[in-house]
Amino acid sequence: MNIRYFAWLREHTGVSSETLTYDPRWTSVADLVADLKTKSDGHAKALADMTLVRIAINYDYVDIDHKLSDGDEVAFFPPVTGG
C-alpha cells in the first residue's frame, strides 16, 4: 500500500510517500498508525496527536476507525489551508 504525507507531517517523517506491505492484522487506520509510529522518531512525532491530523483513503476523507484494504492509498496531512 502507498502511504502519503503532506505539509508538516512530510517534514517530520522526512518522506512524502512510502510503500508498505499490507498486514492483515491492520483492521483499521488506527492499527496502521500504531505501526507507522514505530518506524522512526519523525514518524512518531508526526502521528503523535491524531486530533491534529486528517486522513484520506483513495482521495476520500475517513475517520481513524475506518477499515483498510490491501492496495489502499492512505494519506496523512494537517487540516487544509487553501484558498
Binding site: 503532506f6 505539509a7 484520506a56 496531512f77 494537517p78 487540516p79 487544509v80 489551508t81 487553501g82 484558498g83
Partner: peptide, 22 residues
C-alpha cells in the same frame, strides 16, 4: 474549497517558514 480541498500554505517571514493553521 477552504475546508475540503487538500492545499496547505507555508508562509515565509523574516523569522522563518510557518505552516498556516486552519
Amino acid at each position: 474549497l477552504k475546508t475540503e480541498a487538500p492545499f496547505w500554505k507555508s508562509e515565509n517571514t523574516s523569522d522563518g517558514a510557518n505552516w498556516v493553521s486552519a
